[in-house]
């Protein structure tokens, strides 16, 4: 069997694949956080809960309505996005004029409530969610076996990330969003309904988290605390990428996922902390993040 740097190739590629999968979730989640932070200047602590809600929406749609994976991939983000729109309209929008700390506290409180509710209803143990028939099984790539579903997750998250990036960089709506991120008052003075743009943006960010949740459901179990576990790492990813940088969030997400996977091969003891070590180094050397602009 071939080895690379003394590591069996299948083990190495296996960990890189796991890293890419984790990176896919980091990228999707930090992308949503970056979009929300860029425009609303709110650190959305409810992001992990919205990811969890996405997974639960898929699980509940299947269990109670018999609605399968593919429709859920559209429906769950819509539902979670809608809930986020209600939250923005009724609560977050009242906090725009005040210290950003209030937004952080509100979203943190909402996350605790949501996670508490689902723990009360479903217990802390995870619920299984089967991958769709079409994606069961594995490909033999020659050097390793790749589970089809995992390949799908990497591709789907890439498509969603690139799609979101194109939406922001290449469309009229995206131009409003970029301009409002720089100077919301002026954009509104030009006749753009900025309050509605803020609402839509929060909904979009939450929907991205929910897509990640549905994609994650067949890999990890659907559990009330799945968001809490991942969101801390995602915040580190956002800090490394640069708060508010869209492209930075995407690239850093995949990069750190793969790096974490590689660390598991070469120095497993450090794999849980490697992202935070990198965050600390980046904060020392480039406080605005790898892709962030100094303000």
């Amino acid at each position: 069997m071939s080895t690379i740097f003394g590591i069996p190739a299948p083990a190495l590629f296996g960990q890189i694949l796991i890293g890419l999968i984790n990176g896919s979730f980091y990228a999707l989640l930090s992308l949503g956080l970056a979009v929300i932070f860029g425009l609303l200047r709110i650190i959305n602590f409810a992001h992990g809960a919205q990811y969890m809600l996405g997974a639960f929406a898929a699980y509940l749609l299947l269990t109670y309505a018999g609605i399968g994976y593919w429709p859920s991939l559209i429906l769950a983000p819509l539902l979670v996005g809608l809930l986020a729109v209600v939250i923005e309209k009724t609560m977050l929008s009242r906090l725009y004029g005040v210290d950003p700390l209030y937004g952080l506290l509100l979203t943190f409180g909402l996350a605790l409530i949501l996670e508490g509710l689902f723990r009360y209803w479903f217990g802390a143990a995870g619920q299984p969610y089967a991958a769709p028939q079409q994606l069961v099984g594995a490909y033999n790539l020659g050097f390793m076996f790749m589970p089809i579903y995992r390949g799908w997750v990497v591709i789907a998250s890439l498509v969603v990330c690139i799609g979101t990036w194109l939406l922001i960089e290449k469309t009229r709506l995206g131009a409003y969003l970029r301009a409002a991120t720089e100077n919301a008052t002026l954009v509104q003075a030009f006749g753009v309904n900025v309050p509605r743009l803020l609402t839509l943006t929060y909904g979009l960010g939450a929907a991205l988290a929910a897509i990640a949740g549905v994609l994650a459901a067949p890999i990890y179990q659907v559990s009330p605390l799945m968001g809490t576990n991942i969101i801390i790492v995602v915040f580190a990813v956002v800090v490394v990428g640069g708060m508010g940088s869209i492209l930075g969030a995407i690239i850093t997400g995949y990069m750190l996922g793969v790096l974490e996977g590689l660390t598991k091969v070469f120095y497993p003891e450090a794999s849980n902390i490697v992202i935070f070590v990198i965050m600390a180094i980046v904060l020392l050397v480039r406080p605005a993040g790898l892709f962030g602009r100094e303000e």
């Binding site: 008052t185 509104q188 003075a189 030009f190 006749g191 900025v194």
Partner: peptide, 8 residues
């Protein structure tokens, strides 16, 4: 009027 309606 709200700000964006003035431009409109």
């Amino acid at each position: 009027l709200p700000l964006h309606k003035v431009a409109q």
